[in-house]
Amino acid sequence: MAAAALLSAAFVLIENRTAEPLTPLRLATRGTLARVLPAVTLVAAAMFSVLFLLAQYFQEVRGFSPVEAGLAFLPLMATQFTVARLSPSLVRRFGSAWPSAVGVALVAVGLAWLGRLGRHDAYAAGVLGPLLLIGAGIGVSMPTMNTYGMSGIDPRESGAASGLVQTMQWIGGTLGLAVWVTVFGAATRDPSPGESPEHLLTHGIATAFAAAAACAAVAFVASLAVFRRRP
């Protein structure tokens, strides 16, 4: 972490001084891309919790095999890719702002729903609904925010801008997952006498989902930057 801090500072210093920067830093501070980067980063941070924590829940609490756990994620992925194919039509009809904000709100609601996850919840009642909401939210919000962010970029800098978006998504997801695992650890540190391991794991996972939902709520607030006041 210390080395990362030093290298990041060096990167910013060099990029500010060089005539042909690898990543023009003004892209992250001005224009359409700067308006969506916070929301994109926070949504990615919240989203990573689903892939990691639900895998633990499926296998360690519900006893799913790895194949069964993978199949349990299919509704999320199918919904995400289906809605993503519809996002261009939504942008043409409603613009970028409404689909982006509504999509992030769906992610927040889905994560809050998972924050109430119980040990004995049936898949259809406790997990399927949140997966569909989160899949639809990611499918509509990420493409529309990317479209809006890239709309004000000089074509000569589109590669750098696209790379910056992808980088922020992975940074957000990686740091977010570290936070959710830390929340999970704190929630399971002091088990009650006689509490079963499955109940303890479920409590920790649900607590981490609640924290991720709060992150998604902040992402929703950040996504409102896509709305622009009329002159």
Rank of each mutant, 00 (worst) to 15 (best):
L6S: 02
L7V: 04
F11W: 02
V12M: 12
V12P: 08
N16M: 13
R17V: 11
L22Y: 09
T23K: 01
L25I: 06
L25E: 04
T32Q: 10
T32D: 04
L33Y: 06
L33F: 05
L33D: 07
V40Y: 05
T41I: 01
L42K: 01
A44Q: 06
A45E: 03
F48T: 05
F48N: 03
V50R: 06
L51H: 13
F58C: 05
F64A: 01
P66S: 03
V67R: 05
A69R: 02
G70C: 05
A72R: 03
L74Q: 04
M77P: 10
Q80E: 15
T82L: 14
F94A: 04
S96M: 07
S96C: 12
W98N: 01
A101M: 14
A101F: 12
A101S: 14
V104Q: 15
V104A: 15
L106M: 14
L106S: 08
L111C: 14
W113M: 11
R116E: 08
R119C: 05
R119V: 11
R119E: 14
H120K: 00
H120E: 08
D121R: 03
A122D: 10
A125Y: 11
G126A: 07
L128D: 06
I138Q: 07
I138M: 10
T144Y: 00
M145F: 10
Y148K: 00
G149P: 03
S151I: 04
P155G: 07
S162I: 02
V165D: 01
W170F: 14
I171V: 15
I171K: 11
T174F: 09
L175D: 10
G176H: 11
L177F: 13
W180V: 08
V183Q: 07
V183K: 09
F184C: 07
R189H: 13
A213I: 02
A213G: 00
A214L: 14
C215Y: 08
S223E: 00
